[in-house]
């Protein structure tokens, strides 16, 4: 049993690495040999991954901003340091909560959809049909989803950060009687560009993790509708775990070791 599980794991890791290599080939090398990927499908995917997710991201980010400000108000009041609320909201959002929470939403929304879609295509012989038509499934299906995700997750993160800061402002302005200019000044003073960049790097890495795990799960589905369900669940769980572990690693590299 242990040996079987090990073999299955080995196969999965191998598939995953192969997918990554193939993806890099189709994006970085193939265009120079005259096989440029098509642009239109990338925009279609960007609308799905990014634009349609914006309301959800906005609601989440606003709630998080409000929550952070309220928690900060409570704790900092006892120290008489309520003026630092904007600092806390800003830094937490830019460095951690923004990238992580928006990645969580995108995993639940788009990652699972990609795994289910590609999985259904696999079990209904569509992928095989593509191969028989000499159309590479990685180029045709994975590349547009990958590029759309790489662009849209960081974009959503910037958008979410902004909305989250507005959430913090709402609490400060209406509950704590901060003045708006003071909130903005304080927030901008507290953060430097590296705080923003570190969050952007994180969300780019998360985008890579999410889309490759989802596509890999979808393309390797076996066994009908049940298999599609299992692959979708597995893709969500694996992407979440990988994303959170990677977040810890990156935080360690950016803010602890350095």
């Amino acid at each position: 049993m242990g040996v079987l599980a090990f073999c299955a794991l080995k196969r999965q890791v191998k598939n995953y690495l192969q997918l990554n290599l193939s993806l890099l080939y189709w994006i970085l090398i193939a265009p120079f040999t005259g096989q440029f990927f098509k642009i239109a499908p990338i925009f279609r995917q960007m609308v799905f991954v990014g634009v349609r997710a914006a309301p959800m991201v906005a609601l989440t980010a606003f709630s998080v901003g409000v929550t952070l400000a309220m928690q900060a108000a409570h704790s900092l009041e006892s120290l008489g340091a309520q003026m630092y609320i904007p600092d806390l909201v800003m830094l937490t959002l830019l460095r951690e909560m923004g990238p992580v929470l928006i990645a969580v939403i995108v995993i639940g929304r788009s990652g699972s959809a990609v795994a289910a879609e590609l999985g259904t295509m696999k079990v209904s012989e569509e992928i095989e049909a593509l191969e028989v038509m000499a159309i590479n499934p990685v180029q045709y299906l994975v590349v547009p989803r990958f590029l759309a995700m790489m662009v849209m997750l960081p974009a959503l993160t910037i958008f979410g950060n902004y909305i989250g800061i507005v959430g913090g402002w709402a609490v400060c302005r209406f509950a704590l009687n901060f003045n708006t200019a003071g909130y903005i000044m304080r927030a901008l003073e507290s953060a430097d560009t590296w705080d923003l960049y570190s969050g952007m790097i994180k969300s780019a890495v998360f985008a890579w993790i999410i889309i490759t795990i989802s596509c890999n799960a979808g393309l390797n589905v076996e066994g009908g509708a049940e298999g599609v369900g299992q692959a979708t669940t597995a893709s969500v769980v694996q992407a979440l775990l990988a994303m959170l572990v990677m977040n810890a690693v990156l935080t360690g590299i950016f803010f602890f070791a350095g």
């Binding site: 997918l19 193939s22 992928i127 499934p137």
Partner: peptide, 16 residues
């Protein structure tokens, strides 16, 4: 007797 497992992850070229 199923179709082969997904092999698309290999390097391939398109020939127009």
């Amino acid at each position: 007797v199923r179709p082969r497992p997904f092999l698309g992850a290999r390097f391939r070229f398109h020939h127009k």
